[in-house]
Design a protein around this nucleic acid. Structure first.
Length: 159
DNA sequence: TTAGGTAGTCTCG
DNA sequence: CGAGACTACCTAA
């Protein structure tokens, strides 16, 4: 989240360096970093698993993550993130569609997506607005949104 | 293009 | 607790 965040691993990827935090053996957070910083390599099994699966995903989009996850959030956010993981690769849903299945509202879903701590693994990039691309990693334009575009293209989706 | 409506969360007090 | 102000939205006019 900020400069004091200590990452177990930082890996290079086609969308820039990714910071990875693991707690109690489960994936806790993934951050998009602006530049390469020192790698605080934690050479344990959970970290190796996460790194390997992420690299596999970048190499081949047709890949289903299988990792212990520990995203911290409210009950509603957990429900939304769970729904996101049901979206098949190569497909997208709108905020409104997700909201409908949960008996909630589109803006609330957008809020939950914005707070998703595990982008890529919890595929918030597969959620778009009814009349536009929506946002990504807190931004409605700029670098993060182009990352969203890259991910969708990587998965064969044309907006 | 805008004006409301909507649901969840956060911040004050 | 309650009011008010935020959003990665949506629909109707």
């Amino acid at each position: 989240m900020n400069a004091t965040t200590s990452y177990q691993a930082i890996i290079a990827s086609p969308i820039g360096p990714l910071g990875i935090v693991i707690e109690d053996g489960a994936l806790y957070r993934i951050n998009f970093l602006s530049d390469e910083t020192t790698l605080q390599a934690t050479d344990d099994e959970p970290t190796a698993q996460v790194v390997a699966q992420l690299q596999h995903y970048f190499k081949q989009a047709d890949w289903h993550f299988s990792l212990p996850l520990q995203p911290v959030g409210t009950a509603f956010q957990q429900k939304v993130w769970q729904q996101l993981q049901q979206i098949p690769l190569g497909e997208v849903r709108t905020y409104g569609e997700i909201a409908w299945t949960l008996g909630s509202g589109p803006r609330a879903v957008g809020n939950a997506c914005r707070n998703n701590p595990l982008p890529l693994v919890v595929p918030c990039h597969r959620v778009v607005a009814a009349n536009g691309p929506g946002g990504f990693a807190g931004q409605t334009q700029g670098r993060n949104l182009s990352i969203k575009g890259w991910l969708l293209a990587h998965e064969g989706v044309t907006l």
